[in-house]
Simulated assay, not measured.
Amino acid sequence: MPEIPAADSFLLRIPDVFAKHSPEILGKLGASPLKKLGSDYQMVRLENPATLQDSEWAAFVKWRLPIHHAWPCNPQKMEGFVEKAAQAILKKFGDSQAQALFTGPLQTSAAHPFYKHLATNLRGRTLQLFPAFPVKQVEDQDPDQPTLFCLVGKEGLFCGLATPRETNGFYPGGTKFISQNTESTISRAGAKIAEALHYIELYRPVPKDGAHWLELGASPGGMTSELLARGYRVTAVDKAAMDDRLKIKPGLAIVRNDVDAFRPSEQETFDALLSDMNGDARGSLRQVARLSAHLKKGSLVVFTLKGAGTESPEELIELCRAARAYAEASGLRVIACTHLTYNRHELTLFLSREK
């Protein structure tokens, strides 16, 4: 495979919840801002691109893309944009041997669908010009093989070749749309665990069908419902009541108790653990570490690190640093730390029980 060229600039997506802290975040990453794009993208130059993989501050960057081709223009006012852009992409990346091509809009939250449709049309035309890509569906990508990602918006076209793990997501822009039917959805937390299970595939397989999850702080049951819908069994622990719609669900055991008072039998084991508990993050992690003794070796832990009480990214980083150290000391290996689309002022830690 041809070597991926070095990029002069990058697109970094900083979530809206941290937007006012963008100068601090970019400074910690050694990034020099060039231009704001869309609602939450920054075009930057980096002193050392490796910081996007190595720095703890990278947790505040939802998605990152090396820019190997940029065409500043206004597509909405340009006749024949799709054809011209597709031909330019072919000329630039025709020999790249990318595993797939995926496109998306820069303005992901825009109410007007023009650029979403434009991105779809651009992908369709470009696929007609290229030799067949081996991967057709987003979920089938190899996290370690390069994909050609293209974003389009009122500022123009921006393309880059990178592996999904390097970009921090399988989808262009890093966001997977998760439908939330207001009539059937118990809470928005269901979308959070759905996204988390999608994200972790950048690093390891998700738990197998029928796996038994221990969920801490489960009420009212948004995450529980999502896990059950995926064919998992769940033991849900919370002193508060669960949604009545869950009480007849097969595969669910509800424990109405404080998490710190929950004592599984010595023989009881779980395949995965999920914690979205409110309150002090350190106290929540202590309960996770205690109950991880009931996890099988290699089990996945998904832990929401709540930022309550922190007023700046620096303080949240310090909290995350302490959480990582405590987890490692407790026999839980840190796999990744990121800000999910459905997170608020919090980060999600992915851990694995090693002992």
Results as ranks from 00 to 15, higher is better:
Lys36Met: 04
Leu127Ile: 02
Asn48Val: 07
Pro49Gly: 10
Phe93Asn: 04
Ala119Ser: 14
Phe60Thr: 12
Thr120Val: 14
Gly94Phe: 05
Leu90Tyr: 06
Asp40Tyr: 00
Ala98Asn: 12
Ser109His: 07
Glu83Gln: 14
Gln107Ser: 14
Thr103His: 02
Asn121Glu: 12
Asp16Tyr: 03
Glu47Asn: 05
Phe114Thr: 15
Pro105Ile: 07
Ile89Met: 12
Leu90Lys: 11
Ala58Trp: 00
His21Trp: 08
Gln76Lys: 15
Trp71His: 15
His112Leu: 14
Phe93Ala: 05
Cys73Ile: 15
Arg45His: 07
His68Gln: 13
Tyr115Lys: 12
Val82Gly: 07
Ala70Arg: 11
Leu26Gly: 07
Leu101Gly: 02
Phe102Val: 03
Ala19Met: 01
Gly94Met: 05
Ser39Ile: 05
Lys20Asn: 07
Asp16Asn: 00
Pro113Asn: 09
Lys28His: 13
Met78Ile: 06
Pro49Met: 08
Leu106Pro: 11
Lys84Gln: 15
Leu101Thr: 01
Thr51Lys: 06
Leu122Tyr: 00
Glu79His: 04
Gly94Tyr: 07
Lys36Glu: 11
Gln128Arg: 00
Leu106Thr: 10
Ala59His: 05
Leu118Tyr: 08
Trp71Val: 15
Pro23Asn: 04
Glu24Ala: 10
Gly124Thr: 12
Arg45Asp: 00
Ala85Asn: 06
Arg123Met: 10
Pro23Ile: 00
Thr51Gly: 02
Arg64Leu: 04
